[in-house]
Design a protein around this nucleic acid. Structure first.
Length: 255
DNA sequence: ATGGTCGCCTCGCGA
């Protein structure tokens, strides 16, 4: 089974890329972030024509998450306890016997800002809820755009980014606390090329110069982590014309 | 080089 996460930065703009990538990569499940489309305008028909069902939680202009899957998704959750939030960043669904939680974590803008405080509060509330999900589902994958680079090796220039948004200690501590539920970053179960990133700023030739961060993660419960056979960043769609600023991250699970 | 580029019911903001 192939499971992927991809921040597409507008599903309407990126739909041709998504369809091209689905046809080539044939993932079983894809978590998409930053759809930036309201539910009434979600391109369900085009996606269905490619052989995928979709569940989604969208809003105008910002955020928005979706799960595309070859088989049906059930038990969809878009809102969690103690987080009364109009921002559409959370989408959980069960596909087969796998619980999938798609997260578009708050960016946070700047360390110390109101948005940064919202990010840390959001992560604490999501972590408390994930603890319940983990108790309920042995086969659990939590994936998405975490907007946190877990370690310095996930950052092209750790010195320049030290203490900055996406790399600050409180953010990394919040990610560690989330993972302490029993969720491992399957990318690091395998040998990886140095300077493996999943996001590159559009500005200043970020991708061409590989000035990126690894902020798109696939976290798996113990049972799923044990069955993970590979995890890679697929840089190819980032080379296409008018790309998303993120590349898909893809994990394979056996059994 | 304190810049650069995307996307949005687009001219200012969020990423």
């Amino acid at each position: 089974m192939k499971v992927a996460t991809w921040n597409v930065n507008s599903l309407r703009v990126r739909l041709p890329h998504v369809l091209q990538w689905l046809a080539a990569a044939q993932p079983d499940i894809v978590a998409i972030q930053e759809t930036k489309v309201v539910d009434g305008q979600f391109p369900s028909e085009e996606i269905a024509a490619s052989g995928y069902q979709a569940v989604f939680s969208g809003q105008k202009t910002y955020n928005g998450v979706a799960i595309l899957s070859k088989s049906a998704a059930a038990d969809v959750v878009t809102d969690i306890p103690h987080l009364d939030d109009p921002q559409r960043r959370i989408l959980a669904a069960t596909v087969g016997d796998l619980r999938v939680v798609n997260l578009y974590v708050v960016n946070g803008s700047e360390v110390g800002s109101d948005k940064y405080a919202y990010k840390l509060d959001w992560l604490a509330k999501v972590t408390a809820w994930l603890q319940e999900q983990a108790a309920q589902y042995q086969k659990l994958i939590v994936l998405g755009d975490f907007n946190i680079a877990p370690e310095d090796r996930d950052v092209h220039d750790p010195a320049a980014w030290a203490g900055k948004i996406l790399c600050s200690e409180p953010e990394r501590a919040a990610l560690s606390a989330l993972q302490a539920i029993g969720l491992s970053d399957v990318f690091r179960q395998f040998e990886q090329p140095d300077k493996s990133f999943s996001w590159w700023d559009y500005r200043a030739g970020g991708f061409r110069r590989n000035l990126g961060l690894r902020i798109d993660l696939i976290l798996a419960s113990n049972m799923m982590a044990d069955s993970c056979s590979s995890c890679i960043v697929d840089r190819e769609p980032r080379t296409w014309e008018k790309p998303s600023d993120h590349a898909p991250v893809v994990a394979e699970f056996v059994g």
